[in-house]
Design a binder for these strands. Structure first.
Lengths: 341, 341
DNA sequence: TTTTATATGATTAACGCTCATCATTTTTTG
DNA sequence: CAAAAAATGATGAGCGTTAATCATATAAAA
């Protein structure tokens, strides 16, 4: 049988409004009535019906969801995950506007400042291109009771309500482990980063190096830097520099580019490890050029970040953890197909 | 601005009931009114509010969710995923009763027959211990308009509405790939199954063998069978049989048991690969006894199966695919912590 | 033309919960 | 002890959608 507020009210000979008052701690009920209601609710295992609750509350929340506009598979998936979640919760009065910003952090800063000033939104869910310059803006938002949630990239110095994303130090360590396991006995490695050298990339590098340091088999780890302005020449230089290594870890977003030059190496190709998935990377996995790539579920990240914002703004539920660290998933030839589309 | 049925009704000078009739194709509306409503709905991008809809429909569906009662981590997680989903959708009038059956297929068959006969439920979501003996029962259920959904283990010969779970042939292949990649140059493997030799296990074995056959480096694959009745003696025999191999693939549920005997081997321990995660297996990964284990997200499987049943029974939406194949995830020392708890 | 179907559309009462408003009782104060 | 204040509880009008029931207009049959 269905247990509603009415059930409790009838059994106790009081009105449903009183039951509602007790359930939501809205006061105006004598201690003894309160106690009776609470006991009966527990006895019957009463849980308010969410549909009816949201419908009656007629609360409407506007939230902006900001992330950089990369034409990449990963970001398409992030957006897809966000859009599904938006559909799921919009009928509860939680409305989300997706705002994609240009890649540069300056533009993003401007967009965020505008969002906070505009008074159009009740909160912000954001993937910061770079957490550092945004930290003070986020903090001032938080101080003005404007809740902000980060995902994918964090801004740990700010006082954002919560972060959803990977632990990139750990990702670097995992890359180290895979590099060691997938190569032969002698262990000479190279790690490739790029000019941007964001917090995320630094963490990956530190993780990889830490792992290498702990592993006695590792002879050396070379640091190589990709020049995004002059990609082709830079790649050719890198090619010369990886001829003597057993494994290459691409910590920046250029796994496919590096794969192309590794493909050109005729003998003793190094084992190639990197991050993320795309159709190109999928092909490189199938051709045994890339040995493994470390992924995170993009659908889940955006979705969880939005749900945390939803719980906070609609249900007044503070996130259980500040840091919601997502799984690092290992993708090789054999399970790559599950990570595309 | 919020778009409701009322918005459309007002703009067209008709009643909300007429709008509702058009939206749900319930007839009784003249073609020209119908057309006007449809156009206006599209123009305003009207989507009925789910909360209000479920509340008004007062449809109540009872579903049984049956799976074997294993005291294992994986099944605890399956149950946890199911329970969260139950909480999510019960307010929409979709009620699920969890029924755990004893391990033997005979008991499960009895339980399922009883469920179908009882007339208490409108559908069944089940993880068949063995799909074969259940096939005819499932089929007769389906033929009597009693929808049945499988997960984790399939019963492909039956006419179940849909299946959610892994492709175990593919899992075996992936194990093969990992075995090759994680061992040195000579490739001698053993594969361990047990007496039960279910469909799932057969598929894994076939996948592994198929991969080995395609790989020229592989010298041989030994088939070893674990006797569940006399575990200890059986394990000791197996121990003697794996002294000369480079890699061992445990296709049955005994990864931890096998890990224990591998641990006893002093020199040249074979690379050990298996399935699933538990606290014991986690420890074996940390101690480098198990090299890798292939997992599926248990939370997702049960959840998706229930949601498919929900869509079918509450929204009359037939699943887009019959087979919903879930990701195979590779877990090693470095990312194991994400797969526990 | 009148009668009877049928097509079309309006009205309205739920669904379960929320909350502003009103009614009553109890307590405090002058 | 009366009057005011505070505490406690009931009433009822929504929220947006659904669907049964009723009203009217149009078409078909007599």
């Amino acid at each position: 049988m269905k247990v509603t507020a009415k059930t409790i009210a009838k059994q106790l000979n009081i009105s449903t409004a009183t039951v509602d008052r007790v359930i939501h701690n809205r006061g105006g009920v004598s201690p003894k009535t309160r106690k009776k209601v609470l006991e009966k609710a527990k006895e019957l295992n009463y849980k308010p019906n969410k549909s009816a609750s949201f419908l009656a509350k007629k609360k409407s929340i506007q939230v902006a969801c900001v992330f950089p506009e990369y034409p990449e598979y990963f970001w398409e998936e992030i957006e897809a995950g966000i859009k599904t979640t938006i559909e799921d919760i919009k009928d509860y009065g939680f409305h989300v506007e997706i705002i994609k910003t240009p890649h540069t952090i300056h533009k993003q800063v401007a967009v965020v400042e505008n969002i906070i000033q505009s008074q159009k939104y009740d909160g912000l869910v954001i993937c910061p291109t770079d957490g550092v310059p945004l930290a003070s803006i986020i903090e001032s938002g938080i101080n003005n009771d404007f809740p902000i949630f980060t995902f994918n990239n964090d801004s740990p110095a700010s006082k954002r309500i919560s972060y959803v994303g990977a632990d990139y130090y750990d990702a670097g360590r995992l890359a180290g482990e895979l590099a060691v396991k997938l190569t032969g006995t002698s262990k000479k490695f190279a790690i490739i980063t790029d000019e941007a050298d964001t917090f995320q990339m630094k963490q990956k590098r530190r993780g990889f190096e830490a792992f290498a340091l702990e592993n006695k088999q590792v002879e050396f780890v070379k640091m190589l830097k990709l020049d995004n302005q002059h990609i082709d020449e830079s790649l050719q230089k890198i090619k010369q520099n990886i001829l003597d290594v057993d494994g290459v870890y691409v910590a920046c977003g250029a796994l496919d580019d590096v794969a192309k030059i590794v493909k050109e190496i005729e003998t003793d190709k190094p084992v190639l490890i990197g991050h993320d998935m795309s159709e190109d990377i999928y092909q490189q996995l199938q051709n045994d050029i890339v040995a493994a790539t470390i992924c995170q579920d993009p659908l889940y990240q955006g979705s969880l970040a939005l749900r945390l914002a939803f719980n906070y703004l609609m249900l007044d539920k503070y996130p259980e953890q500040e840091d919601n660290i997502v799984k690092l998933e290992i993708v090789t030839k054999g399970n790559a197909k599950y990570y595309l589309k």
